[in-house]
């Protein structure tokens, strides 16, 4: 019995020692916690992986949780960086004076329909009418005789805020089913007859019909010149007094190396390629 107790005791001590050593070494290096937008998460995860390979001391944790979580966590100062799909000023309850915006990528968003609707082009007005519930059959907008099923994104999701700002013109969307990710929407629209929703460009597959608006095609080139209106920045928010390692990582994400390779590979549009800028009130310059 005593021997077992002794064994347990020594094992515990050993574990404590090891833990002590590892926490000590971590304290010497920089440790970043990044939380927020799931749309930006894949890019930041990849960038963090590359960054840690070239900077052995850095340790970066990237988590999802949604844009709202990212913004409220950075406002409290409990994380190093808060990722968001929307401007902090578009969200109520965030004190924008406390935080600093870094735009790191652009995402284009396109309406998608199930191919059986027979629609490939809509006017902005028609799109709005569909999402407000004024139009309920595809026949009314030049498609086949099928009922329209609207699939929306969760209230407060970054993609939805962007879509509504560019399309809805202040009107409230019809009550409909909501899904919480691009991936689910993609799957649903491709399998549900007569359905319409919207996804980020990188989620458009052969089973979905991306819809042109006023005969403008949803392409990266059209986003860069703002001919395609539905797009948003991906933001990385820091506190006013961000530490050196935080700034260094954001510089890395903004650098040509990441912007030219990773950003494009993962389906975002590089911030350096944009020929226009947009502010929180959707004013384009």
């Amino acid at each position: 019995m005593k021997r077992i107790i002794g064994l347990v005791f020594s094992l515990t001590m050993a574990a404590l020692l090891i833990a002590g050593c590892s926490s000590k070494s971590a304290a010497q290096s920089s440790k970043l916690t990044i939380v927020g937008s799931t749309a930006l998460q894949p890019l930041i995860e990849q960038a963090a992986k590359q960054y840690q390979e070239s900077n052995s001391g850095a340790s970066i944790t990237v988590q999802g949780g949604g844009s709202g979580t990212g913004l409220s966590q950075i406002q409290n100062g409990s994380v190093s960086i808060g990722n968001s799909d929307v401007f902090a000023s578009q969200v109520s309850g965030i004190n924008t004076k406390k935080i600093v915006d870094h735009k790191v990528a652009v995402v284009g968003i396109t309406p998608v329909v199930n191919p059986d609707t027979g629609v490939t082009n809509l006017s902005m007005q028609q799109l709005q009418d569909i999402f407000t519930g004024k139009v309920t059959n595809w026949q009314e907008v030049g498609g086949k005789d099928r009922a329209i099923t609207v699939i929306n994104r969760a209230k407060g999701s970054g993609t939805r805020i962007t879509f509504e700002q560019s399309v809805m013109n202040g009107q409230t969307a019809i009550k409909s089913q909501e899904q919480d990710s691009n991936g689910t929407v993609q799957k649903l629209v491709s399998t549900t007859s007569g359905s319409i929703s919207y996804v980020a460009f990188s989620y458009v597959t052969a089973k979905l019909q991306a819809v042109s608006i006023d005969n403008v095609k949803p392409t990266d080139a059209n986003v860069k010149t703002n001919q395609w209106k539905i797009w948003a920045y991906e933001h990385m928010y820091t506190t006013k007094k961000a530490d050196v390692s935080t700034k260094k990582f954001i510089k890395y994400v903004e650098s040509a190396k990441v912007q030219k390779t990773l950003v494009k590979k993962l389906g975002y549009i590089s911030i350096q390629d944009m020929k226009v800028t947009k502010d929180a009130a959707n004013q384009v310059k």
């Binding site: 799931t38 949780g65 409220s72 009550k175 089913q177 909501e178």
Partner: peptide, 30 residues
């Protein structure tokens, strides 16, 4: 289906208390 509306029938999308919670909590500010 997560549609916050009274269900018309058993196969129309609707939302439960729990589904509304898991959908919304990441998109709201404390």
């Amino acid at each position: 289906g997560n549609a916050a509306m009274l269900p018309h029938n058993l196969v129309s999308p609707s939302a439960t208390l729990t589904s509304q919670l898991t959908m919304g909590i990441g998109n709201t500010i404390m």
